[in-house]
Amino acid sequence: MEIACSVVGGRIDEIREKLNGYVKKIHTVRLVRSPVNPINFKGYGDVKEIINNGHYDIIWTNEPVMGVTVRLAARKVRKNGTKVMYMVHGFHFYKGAPLLNWMVYYPIEKMMANKADLITTINREDYKRAQTFTVPRVEYIHGIGINTERLTKSENAIDIREELGLSSDDFIVISVGELNKNKNQKVIIKAIAQLNDSKIHYILCGKGDQLENLQSQVKENGLEGKVHFLGYRKDVVDITSQADVFAMPSKREGLPVASLEAMYCGLPLVNSNIRGLEDVTENGKSGYTCDPDDVDAFAEGVRKLKENDSFREEASSNNLETVKKYCVSETKKEVESIIASL
């Protein structure tokens, strides 16, 4: 097996070290995520040269720019029997997406669909959409697989309540992910303010360009000491395992890895009712799902979970069962089956 990728944000040496012994060769190509960056023309040349000289049986590509580039570059070798598989981690056009996304990405993906032998999706909305394209085959799999090996709690795990000065009967809501507009953590802060419950605390693990705005929102709502910004943490699993509820109010997701990891840790969820999240959560069974901007619904979901111990335990049990098919051991079987069929 060989891999072609960008310099991965300057981390290519780290990638080479981690994959040493697993792959025959790692090629670097001059491609970036922005579809309007002219360097992608040079990247197309890089990809075409690799494909034409590689004599590959199967080419697996993902991500919009790389996906388009690879499918264009592979037109010749497909005529000679090479199969191309395009894996979609989340179309940029989806229910509720900005009109510009539909105007730019939808026609490109529709036009490029027949340049692949197979499109694989990781959520049901994308699966149904891809089925309307002119492509020989569309498959759905349960994501790229959550790595359960890294979800084992540390033997010397810190006590997050002790670190933050919280008592055993304080109720912890946690979100894990980049602090950006899409992750929409502001709606949970508003919900916490609305609940006005001295026992509810909100922990955010992650960093991002919305940190100052979120901190200002906390101050405006008088929530100092109730909302805790922990930044980037390597012990997220330990912290999550000690929380009571996981919140993911995102506006857009392909498949929510953070929510799946929280489910594996046994947490009930309060999530957005959007593509991807709807695949793994069910309102009233895994917790509660809400419109991304519905502060009242998020507040009500948190309140109900805090006041109903039995439902919280029931949701935890349901999530521990649901998450099994999203673990890497299972999704690996799905991917291997697809590759074998090609």
Score class of each variant (00 low, 15 high):
226 K>F: 06
216 S>Q: 14
136 P>S: 09
154 S>Q: 10
110 K>W: 09
34 S>G: 10
145 G>S: 03
304 K>D: 03
232 Y>M: 07
130 A>G: 07
292 P>F: 13
168 S>C: 03
67 G>V: 11
131 Q>D: 05
270 V>Y: 08
191 A>E: 00
313 E>K: 13
268 P>Q: 06
280 V>Y: 04
151 L>D: 09
334 E>F: 03
6 S>D: 15
287 G>T: 10
275 R>I: 13
173 V>C: 12
258 A>T: 15
189 I>K: 08
118 L>D: 09
269 L>H: 08
270 V>F: 08
229 F>P: 02
18 K>M: 06
110 K>L: 05
63 E>Y: 08
259 S>E: 01
123 N>R: 00
76 K>F: 11
295 V>Y: 08
134 T>I: 12
214 L>N: 09
44 Y>H: 12
74 A>N: 14
289 T>I: 10
173 V>A: 11
300 E>V: 07
226 K>S: 11
2 E>C: 14
105 Y>W: 12
312 R>W: 00
145 G>E: 02
277 L>M: 10
17 E>R: 15
156 N>K: 05
164 L>N: 03
118 L>H: 07
302 V>Y: 04
319 N>D: 04
59 I>D: 14
27 H>S: 10
144 I>F: 13
338 I>C: 08
228 H>E: 01
10 G>R: 01
185 Q>T: 00
16 R>S: 07
16 R>T: 05
208 G>H: 00
9 G>S: 06
242 Q>E: 11
238 D>P: 04
13 D>T: 09
